[in-house]
Simulated scan of single mutants.
Amino acid sequence: MRKLIAALGIVLAVAVSAPIAYAVQPDEVMTDPAKEARARELSRELRCMVCQNQSIDDSDATLAKDLRLLVRERIAAGDSNKQVLDYLVARYGEFVLLKPRFEAHTLILWLIPPLVLIGGGLGLWLHIRRRSRAAEAVADTPVPLNAEEQARLEGILAETNPKA
C-alpha cells in the first residue's frame, strides 16, 4: 500500500511540475529569442479559429500552425505587435482576438458582464427585501383563536385565577 501511495505521489509531482506543453513545433521557433518571445506573446492573444476557445499557442490545429507561422513571418518582416494584430484582424476579423478590443462596436461585449452582475445583485436585494417585509407583516398580524383554542384558554385562565 505504501508503495502505491509513493508511486502516486511521484506521478502527481511529475505531472504538476512538468512544464506546460505548447503546440509550437521546433521548426516554427525563431532563431532570435527576443522575436520568439514576441511571437509567443502574440500567439497567446490570438484565438484558434478551429478550437475557438484556445489560443493558437496551445492549439494543434493546422490553421493554428498556419497562424503561428504568419505571426512569425510578420515579426521577421519587421512589423510591430500592433501591426501584426491589425493585419490579422483585417484578415480574419475581430473574432481572432481572444480578448476583444475596447471600441464602439465591441462596447456591448464589455458592458454585458457588469450589467448582468449589477442586475442580479439588484434582483437579489429586492427579493430579500420583499421576503423580509412579508415576514414582518405576518409576524405583526395577530391570528384569531378558533373556538376550541378560545375555550381551552378560558379553562387555563379559570384554573390559574379561580376568583375571576
Rank of each mutant, 00 (worst) to 15 (best):
A139P: 13
D79W: 10
L12R: 13
H127D: 04
V84K: 04
L42F: 01
L115N: 02
D32K: 04
I56R: 01
L63S: 04
E41R: 10
D79T: 10
E36M: 08
A158P: 13
D58F: 03
S55A: 03
L124V: 09
I10H: 10
R133F: 10
D140P: 06
L12G: 15
A15Y: 14
A37E: 06
V84M: 06
K35W: 03
F95W: 10
T160R: 15
E41M: 03
K35T: 11
K163S: 13
A34L: 15
Q150K: 13
L109E: 13
D66N: 09
L12W: 15
D58I: 03
R68H: 07
A34K: 15
S80I: 05
R101E: 14
F95S: 14
P162A: 09
D140R: 15
A134S: 15
E28Q: 06
R38A: 11
V29H: 01
S59Q: 03
L157F: 14
G9N: 10
T141M: 11
L12Q: 13
P19G: 07
L8H: 12
P100T: 05
P33D: 08
E103R: 08
D27R: 00
A164C: 13
E154H: 11
D79K: 15
K163N: 14
G155K: 13
A6L: 08
R44W: 00
M1Y: 12
A158V: 12
N53F: 02
S55M: 04
S17A: 10
D32E: 09
D27V: 02
K65P: 00
V29P: 02
A64H: 01
Q54D: 01
V24Q: 09
G9Q: 08
A77M: 12
A39K: 02
T31H: 11
A23Y: 05
K65W: 00
F102M: 07
M49H: 05
R74V: 02
A134Q: 15
E159D: 08
I56N: 00
L115R: 03
L111T: 08
V84Y: 03
W125Y: 11
A61T: 05
D79R: 11
E159K: 09
L98T: 05
V116Q: 01
A76C: 07
L122M: 08
V71A: 06
D86S: 07
A64V: 06
R152W: 09
